[in-house]
Nucleic acid binder design. Structure first.
Lengths: 230, 230
DNA sequence: CGTCTAGCCTTACGCCGTAAACTTACACTG
DNA sequence: CAGTGTAAGTTTACGGCGTAAGGCTAGACG
């Protein structure tokens, strides 16, 4: 038995394997459950071995966040700037929903360092798309802030709401959770909140994406009008 | 010497004193520097004593977040709904900037529990102001999401950018930091990003608030138009 | 064959949150 | 007054965290 029948034959650790396993762990249990010891165990290795492929935990976290940011689609420039930006924004929204732990880390990075390349590429793409469409530098300045903050901010906002709904106990049916919330809410004191929660119960699936695009359209419409009146 | 000349005479711990000290610690060193042991030391007490006034660390954190949310001004209903909502939003923005650790915790609460009273009051106020202005339930549903996510999301977005600028090394002059960033940026690859960073250098102080209101106005204008065309 | 080196492991340190058991101080009751 | 109950603070201890320091081993290369 010359081959890998023995437990001795371990597939060697690589930075890729480490990062991939880290993303898997974070996807499954949230970023706070990503631990050097647990990650090592997952890879059949001791914790300190990870440090041969990763400077420290901050470096590890930064790296996996970069991988997620790298998933964002940056469409090649088309004729319709609104459509291009919307496609990018929706793609970012989806990527961040796939990895719910990443959004908070992009918004408030723990370790401070030079902005990583994937984030730079994304920023440059958005700025370029605006400027080449004819936006003035001044309008682009504000438009970028409004767009980027909506993409990241709304997504984290949505995640905060749905995660808390899912986590509050085992049941992952959001409608049922909101229903329970409604029943314990003193509806007399909060009639409009009760109405709002009720709307969430009856909302169709995929409602989060629709809300995201509602706010996005508000911003894009406003920008379009601002550009035309300028 | 019957009075408090002796070190024995300690002002007794109360929940208020604990929460107040916790906010002070978090304001100074960020939420991750808020530790039961450090907080106790700050109060001249042992860590375990805190548990007489606070269920656990999650309870403590929830409580101080609630205090911050409670600082948000909810104007009594005036004639101009845009002005009322703007006042509330700006007040929330300011409160969250005063306590930079709070925004992330409101957006993605660590401990899950029933929504706390201050948050309920805030939500109800905003929903009520929209509905009583004449917004349909459907439009209110989306308007609330757009507004709340902008208030929290943009603020966290802004904090993430300014904090990373401040923390990267000792100098707290943001312009100087951006300048350093600019010099190390391969400007040939990122011309628009360089332009954008340059704008930040020359931006007047208080620019964050202006950006916040730019996005807010975009949303409010869109909502106003949506209500009129409906 | 000897030596170098990269990759992994072992041990250890100082943090963290907090359970459990204790001491103390005081208020109330007989 | 003594006796007792209770609330507040302390001590000790446990398991988990990130990671510094150093040891071990297997293959590469002269």
């Amino acid at each position: 038995m010359p081959a890998d029948a023995d437990s001795k034959a371990r597939t060697p650790l690589t930075r890729e394997r480490v990062l991939e396993a880290a993303i898997r762990l974070a996807d499954e249990g949230g970023i706070e459950s990503l631990t050097m010891r647990k990650l090592a165990r997952e890879l059949g290795v001791e914790a300190m071995s990870l440090y041969n492929h990763v400077a420290n935990k901050g470096d590890l976290v930064d790296a996996i966040v970069d991988l997620v940011v790298g998933e964002i689609e940056l469409p090649s420039t088309g004729v319709d700037w609104v459509a291009d930006i919307k496609r990018c924004a929706v793609s970012a929204h989806e990527a961040l929903l796939r990895h719910p732990w990443a959004c908070g880390l992009v918004l408030s990075p723990g370790t401070i360092r030079a902005l990583p390349a994937p984030r730079l590429r994304y920023m440059e793409w958005l700025l370029k798309r605006l400027r080449e469409t004819g936006f003035s530098p001044e309008l682009t300045y504000h438009a970028y802030h409004a767009l980027d903050s909506h993409i990241l901010g709304f997504t984290l906002w949505q995640l905060g709401h749905s995660i808390s709904a899912i986590d509050v106990d085992g049941s992952k049916d959001l409608a049922e959770l909101v229903d329970k919330f409604l029943r314990q809410l003193p509806a007399a004191d909060y009639p409009y909140l009760a109405e709002h929660a009720q709307q969430h119960v009856t909302a169709p699936s995929g409602d989060g994406a629709r809300q995201f695009e509602f706010g996005l359209d508000l911003i894009l419409d406003g920008l379009k009008r601002a550009r035309e009146t300028a």
